[in-house]
Write a protein that binds this DNA or RNA. Structure first.
Length: 294
DNA sequence: CGCCAGGACGATG
DNA sequence: CATCGTCATGGC
C-alpha cells in the first residue's frame, strides 16, 4: 500500500468530505473516487477507505509530514469534544458531523482566500480563487487531462494590476488583495513570524491590513495557525448564536464576540466549525421545506 | 427578479 | 458602543 506515491493516514472519526467542503478550504473538487486538490505546490488525490485516508501524488515523496499537518491527521477528536461545555445545541451539531476537522493550511493562501471571501457565497469564493490560480498560479504536475495550478505567490499577485485582479471577479476586494500581497512580498508582514505570536497579538497584526477585520483575521488564525480560541463570526454563525443562545433576538455583533469568547474559552475554533456546518444544513432543510409547501 | 452571501470601513447618532 | 450606507458580483 505505501510506496513513494501513495500513503495511508490512519485516522478515526474523520469525515473527509465534510472537512474538505465545509468552507475552510476552497480548492478541493470531488471526483469519482474521492477528492483532488493542490496542497502548497503538490497535486494530491485523497480517498477515504476503511483503513484510513489514502493519499496519492504524481511525484515521489520522501515523507508525508506536510500532508499529515495539512489534514491534522493526528488530532484525537474525542479530546477536542471533551473540552466543550455541556450544550445541547453544540451536541446536536457534533452528532451531525462528528468527523469534521479543522485543516492546517498554508498561511498566504488562507489569508488571500479569506480576503476574497467577504460577502460572497462559498461557491463564488471558489470560482474567484479558481480564476486567480489559473491566471497567476504556477502549473503543477498532475495526472490526467485536467490542469492544476498552485495558489499564486504573494510576489506574483503584488505584481499584478488591480484591473488584472478584477478580471477574476473579485470586485472591491482587489485593492485589499494587492495590498496584502505587497506587504507579504516586501517583508512588512512576515507570515512565518506571525505564527510565533500569541493569538491577540497576531490578530492585531492581521487587522492592520485593510480589508481584514476580526472575522477574516480569525479565519486565518484558526485555519492556518491553529489558534484554538479563534472564533470567526460570519452571518451564519451570528444567526446560529442568536437562535441558540439569545432566543432569536437582534444581538449586535460586538456582544456576540464577547459571548463566544467567554463561553468557548480555549475551544472556540472547533465549536464554531460544528455550529457553522449545523446551521447551514439546518437552514437549507428549512428553506427546502418552505419551498415545497407552496 | 430580488434577496443575500464565511465583511470591512468610514461616518454618524 | 450601535447603526447605516457603500463597495462588486452573481447564485439561487
Amino acid at each position: 500500500m505505501n510506496d513513494r506515491f501513495t500513503h495511508c493516514f490512519k485516522v478515526q472519526d474523520y469525515d473527509l468530505a465534510a472537512t474538505l467542503s465545509c468552507g475552510q478550504a476552497f480548492r478541493w473538487q470531488a471526483d469519482a473516487e474521492g477528492w483532488q486538490g493542490v496542497v502548497a505546490n503538490t497535486w494530491v488525490h485523497l480517498e477515504h477507505k476503511p483503513d484510513g485516508i489514502v493519499a496519492r501524488t504524481c511525484e515521489p515523496q520522501t515523507d508525508w509530514q506536510w500532508l499529515a499537518d495539512y489534514l491534522q491527521a493526528h488530532i484525537d477528536i474525542g479530546s477536542v469534544l471533551a473540552a466543550f461545555p455541556a450544550d445541547p445545541n453544540l451536541q446536536a451539531a457534533v452528532r451531525g458531523h462528528r468527523g469534521l476537522r479543522l485543516l492546517r493550511q498554508p498561511a498566504w493562501e488562507c489569508l488571500a482566500s479569506f480576503i476574497l471571501s467577504s460577502t460572497k457565497q462559498i461557491i463564488q469564493i471558489r470560482q474567484i480563487i479558481e480564476s486567480l490560480c489559473e491566471q497567476f498560479g504556477e502549473p503543477v504536475a498532475a495526472p490526467g487531462p485536467a490542469s492544476f495550478c498552485a495558489f499564486p505567490s504573494a510576489r506574483r499577485l503584488a505584481a499584478a494590476t488591480e484591473t488584472e485582479l478584477r478580471a477574476c471577479k473579485m470586485g472591491f476586494r482587489a485593492p485589499y488583495l494587492r495590498e496584502a500581497a505587497s506587504a507579504v512580498a516586501e517583508g512588512q508582514l512576515n507570515l512565518d513570524q506571525l505564527g510565533q505570536l500569541p493569538y491577540a497579538a497576531a490578530r492585531d497584526r492581521l487587522t492592520q491590513l485593510s480589508g481584514v477585520g476580526e472575522k477574516i483575521a480569525d479565519c486565518v488564525l484558526l485555519f492556518a495557525y491553529g489558534h484554538a480560541d479563534a472564533f470567526p463570526i460570519d452571518v451564519w454563525i451570528a444567526r446560529a448564536l442568536r437562535q441558540f443562545y439569545f432566543r432569536g433576538r437582534c444581538v449586535p455583533l460586538p456582544r456576540l464576540r464577547t459571548f463566544a469568547s467567554e463561553r468557548w474559552h480555549g475551544c472556540g475554533g472547533y465549536a464554531q466549525q460544528y455550529l457553522f456546518q449545523y446551521i447551514r444544513h439546518q437552514h437549507g432543510k428549512t428553506a427546502r421545506a418552505v419551498r415545497s409547501s407552496h
